[in-house]
Amino acid sequence: MELAPGQEPVEKIYYRAAALIAEYGIGRVVIDTLGDLTLGLGRAEEAREAERWFLRRLKALGVTTLATQQLVKVTGRNPLSEIGAAELADTIIYLGLVEIESRLEKVMSVLKHRGGPVSGDLRAIACGAGGLQVSERFVGLSGLLDGTARGQRKTQIEEVFQPLYFIRDFLKMASRPDLDPARRGQMLERLEGETSRVIASLAQYFDLPLGETDTRKDSKA
């Protein structure tokens, strides 16, 4: 029989749950979410201590525990301070949403991993036909944990500047007076292709159809 929070002391609920887990030899437990049993009890400190006792008891029984917790707000200074019983967890993974250029993206980061190094990088994740994909870290952006990113992605900037570097170098080479005409023609064709890449990158960045990026009008001599 399910008991609503407040029907009996939370300590007793945790004790009964631990006893049942030990009795049936349960090896894996999922808690979704931490703190739900303590809602409306009005005894926050006692509830947190009972929660810690329960997690310690599960660890002593050799149980693998997966717990989730919804965070109202996460700050970049010390995100672990917002997580209940963080000191007892072996691994803490942050999953959230962030607004980047008027689009919501899912992000993840490993905040803690006992016994191993943690980079703390925030990376975008996407689940498609090929499974879960994790992107490179967000270079050039800040404020991701606040929900709204500031700055520009390094990858987006590189997509624009890389062909510009090619165009600059090709122009220097094409301007040489001793350059073979056939070679100059090949370089001009390459310049046209690199210029198209810049136009396509800018059109994608500003969310414009490619036809709208060419504002030139035919003029009469």
Rank of each mutant, 00 (worst) to 15 (best):
G96L: 00
V110T: 04
R52S: 03
Q133K: 15
R28Y: 14
S135M: 13
D32T: 02
H113N: 11
P79M: 00
A126M: 11
R137N: 08
C127S: 13
K12F: 13
P163Y: 08
E189D: 15
I199P: 00
V160G: 02
E189Q: 13
A203I: 03
L80S: 01
E87S: 05
Q133S: 13
V29P: 06
I83L: 03
A47Q: 03
L20D: 13
T213G: 10
S102I: 03
L58Y: 00
V110H: 01
I92H: 00
T91L: 12
E2T: 10
T38A: 11
Y94N: 01
I125G: 10
V118S: 04
K217I: 09
K112G: 00
A18M: 04
G128K: 04
V72R: 12
D180G: 03
T65L: 01
E212N: 10
L144G: 04
G76N: 07
S196P: 04
L171V: 02
L39M: 14
T68P: 03
R48C: 05
L95V: 09
E82S: 14
K220W: 15
V10N: 05
I157K: 03
T64K: 12
D36S: 11
R184M: 02
T68A: 05
M187E: 06
A126R: 15
Q152H: 14
L97M: 05
V72P: 07
K106W: 15
Y24M: 13
S109N: 03
L97D: 11
L61S: 02
R190Q: 11
E192N: 10
T68V: 04
L188K: 01
I26G: 06
R168D: 06
L41W: 13
Y15I: 09
E8F: 14
R183E: 14
F206V: 08
L132W: 08
M108C: 13
I26Y: 11
K112R: 01
I31D: 05
V139Y: 12
L39F: 15
T155P: 01
A22M: 06
R48I: 08
R190P: 01
R77A: 06
E159I: 08
I125D: 11
V30T: 07
L80W: 03
V134M: 09
T33F: 04
T195A: 08
G115N: 00
E99Q: 07
R197M: 07
E51S: 06
T213D: 11
L171D: 03
F166Q: 03
A18W: 01
Y15N: 13
L95E: 09
A50K: 01
E46I: 04
R176K: 12
E8A: 15
Q152I: 14
Q162A: 14
R183W: 08
A50W: 01
P177S: 00
